[in-house]
Every structure is written in structure tokens, then in C-alpha cells.
């Protein structure tokens, strides 16, 4: 593995993101969070902790998903469009390295944005008197793994289609996969055996983004932290799924004329 190469590429993505002032988007979204919490505070309602936590994890999930998709979907197409891909490929790096480095950079940029938003949300929650709980650390960790998987899915889609189409489809998958899974589980019992196999197949290939979101447990009272085997399992699943997506993107990109 060429970790140094990947890191160099990832650093490039991160610096490019800073240069393009993507973090301004994060700042604006953060200001929305603070303004919303300020508005709630203005109402002066006691006992809104559960609601504040619920709102916090919902907004955090929404904004970080938007940032992950918008950051990742244009990475490859921009390199091709701006013709900056040629000098990169002239160096002794493979196309797989390029994809892996880009993905690593996208994940780091998304995580940076997520951590900033998380910090702002935490401040807002502290203002509402929300106490710190261990499950919140698990929430942040699992959310970051889920965002990594989302970056991998978006990067792969951008290898197959235009940035706009990749972003749109990524949004559909990110926000719709849980709904699709829910529909499959509801329809499974009343379906024919053949259809049940089809449902199992669809369920296995769909990215299970919903599993990485333990927001409902964080928002409501007295939920125990997630067992460690589950955290480990999700980490393994996330790495495997992102690896699979990377291979899929490479299978397209390695033979693509640029």
C-alpha cells in the first residue's frame, strides 16, 4: 500500500477544499445551528433538552451529509475538466492510488467539517443544559464511519456519471436507503419466495446508512450505549463497503480514456 502517496493526495484535496473556501459553507451552516438554538432560547422554554438533542442530531446528520456529497461528487470530474489529472498521472502513481487518495481526502475534509459542526452543536446543547453522555461519543464515531461510506459511494457514482447526477443519486441513496430497507422488511412476509430472495439481494447491496445513525438513542432519555461488538461490526462493514465501492470505481476509472 502506498500510504504516503495516498496521504499526499488527500492533503491536496484538503488544501483545495480550504482554498475553495468550502469551510465557509460549514461556517454558514454552523451559524444556522447557533441561530436556531438562540431562537429556541429566546422562547425561554424549560425542559426542551430532549427536543434540543433531537434537533441537534437531525441537523448535524443533514448538514454533514450535504457536505460529504458536495465535497466528493466533484473531485474526479473537476480533475478531468481542469486537466489537472494529466500532471498527476504523469507521476509514478496508479489510477487506484489516485482514487484512494482522493477518497481519503474527501473523507478527511468531511470529517473536519463534521467536527466543526459537532463542536458548534455541542455548544448549543450545553446552552440548553444537556449533559454529556458516553453514547454521544459513539454517535460521533459511528457517524464519521457512515460519512466515510457515503464519500465512497459518491466518489464511485462520480466515476460513472456527471457530478450533478452523482450528487443527486447520492442524496437519494443517503436519504432513501433506510426508507427502501423499511419497505422491504414490511413487504417481505407477504411476498413470494422468489421475490423474497430479490429483497434479500437488494438489502445486501444497498448501503445501510441508517445503521450508522444512533441519533434517536442519543436524543431520548435512558438509552444504554451501543454494545462494542456492534461498533466493531459497523466499523468492519464500513471499511468493507467503502473498499468495495473503491474497487468498483477503479474498475471503471482504470479503463477510462481521459
Amino acid at each position: 500500500m502506498k500510504l504516503r502517496v495516498w496521504w499526499a493526495l488527500a492533503r491536496g484535496v484538503l488544501l483545495e477544499s480550504l482554498r475553495r473556501k468550502d469551510l465557509w459553507v460549514v461556517a454558514i451552516l454552523g451559524m444556522i445551528i447557533m441561530a436556531a438554538s438562540g431562537a429556541l432560547g429566546f422562547f425561554g422554554v424549560e425542559g426542551l433538552q430532549t427536543f434540543a438533542k433531537d434537533l441537534g442530531v437531525t441537523v448535524l446528520g443533514l448538514f454533514s451529509t450535504v457536505i460529504a456529497i458536495l465535497t466528493t461528487s466533484r473531485l474526479l470530474p473537476d480533475e478531468i475538466k481542469n486537466r489537472t489529472l494529466y500532471p498527476l498521472l504523469a507521476r509514478p502513481i496508479s489510477r487506484f492510488d489516485l482514487l484512494a487518495g482522493k477518497l481519503m481526502g474527501a473523507i478527511l475534509a468531511t470529517w473536519l467539517a463534521f467536527v466543526i459542526l459537532l463542536a458548534l452543536t455541542s455548544v448549543a446543547l450545553l446552552m440548553f443544559g444537556v449533559r454529556f453522555e458516553v453514547i454521544m461519543v459513539q454517535y460521533a464515531l459511528l457517524k464519521m464511519v457512515g460519512l466515510g461510506v457515503l464519500c465512497a459511494v459518491t466518489l464511485t457514482l462520480s466515476a460513472f456519471m456527471t457530478p450533478s447526477a452523482a450528487a443527486t443519486l447520492s442524496f437519494v441513496v443517503a436519504f432513501g436507503s433506510s426508507m427502501i430497507v423499511r419497505g422491504l422488511t414490511m413487504a417481505y412476509e407477504t411476498s413470494s419466495p422468489a421475490m423474497q430472495w430479490f429483497f434479500k439481494f437488494i438489502n445486501s447491496i444497498l448501503p445501510q446508512f441508517g445503521l450508522f445513525d444512533i441519533g434517536p438513542r442519543v436524543a431520548n432519555e435512558n438509552w444504554a450505549p451501543v454494545p462494542l461488538w456492534v461498533v466493531g461490526g459497523l466499523l468492519a462493514y464500513g471499511v468493507a463497503y467503502a473498499g468495495g465501492m473503491l474497487l468498483l470505481a477503479w474498475s471503471k476509472f482504470r479503463s477510462q480514456a481521459v
Binding site: 417481505y188 429483497f199 438489502n203 445501510q208 444512533i214 434517536p216 438513542r217
Partner: peptide, 23 residues
């Protein structure tokens, strides 16, 4: 419940994980 109980869930380990991570 929206998240199905174990006996009504075909998803195996995915279902187990969802029941462990969701409320």
C-alpha cells in the same frame, strides 16, 4: 414498531445491528 422484531425480520445480522443502534 417501525424497526421490526427479530422474529419478523429477514435481514439477519443487519436487523440485529439496527435493533442495537436504533431506539
Amino acid at each position: 414498531t417501525v424497526v421490526p422484531s427479530k422474529e419478523r425480520d429477514f435481514r439477519g445480522v443487519f436487523g440485529d445491528i439496527e435493533r442495537a443502534t436504533k431506539a
